[in-house]
Design a protein around this nucleic acid. Structure first.
Lengths: 215, 215
DNA sequence: TGATCAATGTTGACGCTGTCAACACCAAAT
DNA sequence: ATTTGGTGTTGACAGCGTCAACATTGATCA
């Protein structure tokens, strides 16, 4: 998807032209993705991305109207990777409380593994500021996972009757808050290794879930 | 505080020199604060700040080594304002559960009122990336409020025995997550006015606090 | 087969930015 | 009265996003 200009000979076939790149759009996205994790969204330079692809400074403008548009496309990619990680981590975990825990662990793990991506997804390129349908859909897909898991959790017996949107927002907030703080604050120790982090995410999600139960 | 170079004739006294500004450092911080909320931390330009103070492009370098240093000072200011808001909102509220709720409301209200400040505080200028003692102290002061309130809450009868740092991190995470999402995501409706927002913050904090209780 | 066309690349320029080096001004200490 | 050090200015440099004009190509159609 996202590529259908003429026939797309895909990647530089051997001995190819050297003038026309062949698959510049994807090459730009890949290079930008690398650069993103190296320097962060703020310092991501379009010219540097072009340099890394071996094309001129303005070549990217044939594929992205603006630097911002590149970042938006990158953010959409990031949201898809994010959703993929959550989905695979929670695959086969059908017990609602366990599933919410798994999603929370995946959320935190993704953030720690790709801090710049997370900052990109929720920074000034976030879906709220931009009406790109692709980005909004990618974000929606990710959050639908939390939404649906929360819905199943609320259906468990012994759970307090409450608004689904609010409960979803709460689950989302606690893992998002944890992930954000882990990324850009000096945290009290205890986040050294993956195991400890997952434990912490589980603990906090458990507290939240207990709060959803009837007294 | 933060100003003690020679005697500080403070502000441009009437008919002052016109070459030496008199209180440029504070003027720069004020102008930068305005510009910050207008364009966000990313587009905050040192030259524009200088222009607004009526000085040359390089005058700011007498007071801040670098653009980043200006942002760090601004972030420290923001943390102090943030702590002030939480402190005054929770003033006189001594019942631990109610105090945590009040802090949560203030957290969200501050974020909505000053989104750019929040992004600055937690973005690439956040305390983790910078060892500025001033910034770290300002941040510590803000979070001490949540920490102490959580400590008091854990001391309430009927509360599950658990680690204070984890419980603090959880409370912090849920309000920070909510505030962050409110700032840079398209949220499900319900955040229209201050009253509704405070209600939502209370609801989520209540869920969290219920989770802290023994079953 | 050869001309045309649209997609995709390049060159060169503009104004903006952060930052540096060199210089100007001015208040206070000697 | 002179020196000095803090503060402000001018001028320059390289890097940035972006625009306009031009070049090169593979595909389309006469």
């Amino acid at each position: 998807m996202a590529d259908r200009s003429h026939n797309a000979q895909s990647a530089k076939s051997p001995g190819s032209d050297a003038y026309h790149h062949g698959d510049l759009r994807n090459a730009l996205l890949a290079a930008a993705g690398d650069l993103l994790e190296e320097v962060g969204p703020e310092r991501l330079s379009l010219r540097e991305v072009a340099r890394r692809c071996g094309v001129s400074q303005t070549a990217p403008y044939r594929h992205f109207d603006t630097r911002h548009a590149l970042l938006v496309a990158l953010a959409a990619d990031a949201f898809r990777a994010f959703a993929g990680r959550m989905k695979s981590e929670a695959e086969g975990v059908d017990d609602p409380p366990a599933r919410l825990r798994a999603l929370g662990r995946a959320y935190l793990a993704f953030a720690i593994a790709n801090p710049a991506k997370l900052r990109l997804m929720f920074g000034p390129q976030s879906p709220s500021k931009d009406s790109s349908a692709e980005l909004q859909e990618a974000a929606r897909e990710a959050f639908a996972l939390i939404h649906d898991a929360t819905e199943a959790r609320l259906a468990q017996p012994g759970t307090r009757k409450m608004d689904l949107e609010q409960a979803t927002l709460g689950a989302w907030a606690i893992v998002h808050g944890l992930a954000s703080l882990a990324i850009d604050m000096p945290l009290p120790p205890g986040l050294e290794d993956e195991a400890r982090r997952s434990e912490l995410a589980d603990t906090l999600m458990d507290i939240y879930q207990r709060g959803l139960d009837a007294t």
